[in-house]
């Protein structure tokens, strides 16, 4: 059977059912918004006994903990199936990426399993996040020197 790769790829791509973009956007907005609203509520609560900066940090820690716990008991992926970017983009997505990788690798031991594979998914975010932060810092430093 003779077939041109490019035209077949175009044909297959064109007929493949696409993800429901509008529905996904609405769900992501609602779930993401809900998580942020809960975070804001937590911050208000923490600010009753902490300074604003410390309260913000504690909110992040709380969200990371809840997401990791839900990952461990097998609920997070069921929520994320509907929430999509709504759970992925906030810090909950990062927590899930780390916790799920760690859970998966535990059979291979704590060093070569969990230790080596815990950042399989989150690794690129850490690497390029830190790199971007360092570049931003250098630019900020130069700009403030010039502005003086």
């Amino acid at each position: 059977m003779q077939m041109d790769k490019n035209s077949y790829k175009k044909y297959a791509d064109a007929r493949a059912k696409k993800s429901p973009c509008a529905k996904n956007c609405v769900c992501a907005f609602l779930f993401g918004g809900l998580i942020c609203a809960i975070a804001q509520g937590l911050k208000e609560l923490y600010m009753t006994f902490l300074k604003e900066d410390d309260a913000g940090t504690l909110v992040s820690v709380t969200l990371i903990f809840i997401a990791a716990l839900l990952t461990g008991v097998g609920i997070f992926d069921r929520i994320a199936k509907h929430a999509g970017a709504g759970t992925l983009v906030p810090i909950t997505g990062f927590s899930n990426a780390v916790a799920s990788s760690a859970l998966d690798a535990k059979g291979e031991g704590f060093v070569l399993g969990v230790g080596a594979k815990i950042f399989t998914i989150a690794g690129p975010v850490i690497l390029y996040g830190i790199t971007a932060g360092a570049i931003y810092g250098v630019i900020y430093y130069i700009v403030t020197l010039i502005m003086k």
């Binding site: 996904n24 997070f76 992926d77 799920s100």
Partner: peptide, 17 residues
């Protein structure tokens, strides 16, 4: 799943295909 795609508990969305 764990060999070819993502960890089992990873919260991603699957494509319709």
């Amino acid at each position: 799943e764990r060999q070819f795609r993502y960890p089992l508990e990873y919260g991603g969305q699957r494509a319709p295909t």
